[in-house]
């Protein structure tokens, strides 16, 4: 047990710092991805002239490996756009980019699966299309796609380990740093894996509990 104590327990503050950075960068990326995904889905569905650009953007986000995107955002964007200026920003932007593509498609299917009657009932009482979307369609979409959204968050958490490559000091970065200091990978990397597993399990379980509750209450989803 000596190694575990020395390499993991005694380094817990370092690992915790890393974990907090992971948490933070994932939360930012997730929030941005949800907003961007919804925006992209709406452009694709309702804004005729922007339909094809939106589809191409979505496909680009989905079809590029996260590592390529990370490099692209980190090295290409600053050259062309002058932004992002920090590795940290480049990290969450790349993570958000990829997930926004997937979430856009999740939102689109969710919106398309709401029956026409829901919309018509809203129009029939005089609601405008915008109000109908906000009050009637979107809440139902969120309930039905809640499990997919939670899954996408876990994808972000897993992908986020790559931001250590551009020196963002997340959990993976800290753990690799410890490995490089001590040259003892077994305990440190195993503990790191365990932290990721526990966290992702916790998120999935919470997501499932939430989805079950929503389904029971509204009789929505499958």
């Amino acid at each position: 047990m000596g190694n575990w104590e020395r390499l993991v327990w005694n380094q817990r503050n370092v690992l915790l710092d890393g974990f907090l950075v992971t948490l933070e960068i994932c939360a930012i990326a997730f929030a941005v991805a949800v907003a961007a995904g919804l925006g992209l889905a709406l452009l694709r569905l309702y804004v005729r002239p922007l339909r094809w650009p939106a589809i191409m953007w979505i496909e680009y986000c989905r079809a590029t490996p996260i590592y390529v995107q990370l490099m692209w955002v980190n090295y290409v964007w600053p050259e062309i756009l002058g932004w992002p200026t920090t590795f940290y920003t480049a990290g969450w932007v790349a993570l958000a980019l990829q997930s926004s593509g997937y979430l856009a498609e999740t939102f689109r299917t969710g919106i398309e699966n709401i029956g026409r009657g829901q919309r018509e009932a809203a129009y029939a009482v005089g609601m405008s299309p915008l109000l109908t979307f906000r009050r009637i369609i979107l809440p139902q979409v969120l309930v039905t796609i809640a499990p997919s959204i939670v899954t996408q968050f876990t994808v972000i958490v897993k992908s986020s380990t790559l931001v250590s490559v551009i020196t963002v000091q997340d959990l993976m970065f800290q753990s690799q740093r410890l490995v490089n200091v001590w040259f003892e990978p077994i305990e440190i990397l195993t503990a790191t894996a365990a932290i990721y597993i526990l966290f992702i399990f916790a998120v999935s379980a919470a997501g499932k509990a939430l989805a079950d509750r929503l389904r029971l209450r509204y009789g929505l989803g499958t």
């Binding site: 029956g115 009932a121 809203a122 029939a124 809440p139 139902q140 929505l220």
Partner: peptide, 10 residues
Amino acid sequence: VFQQFNLWPH
């Protein structure tokens, strides 16, 4: 009033 009710389930 619609044939399928169309109540808002949420």
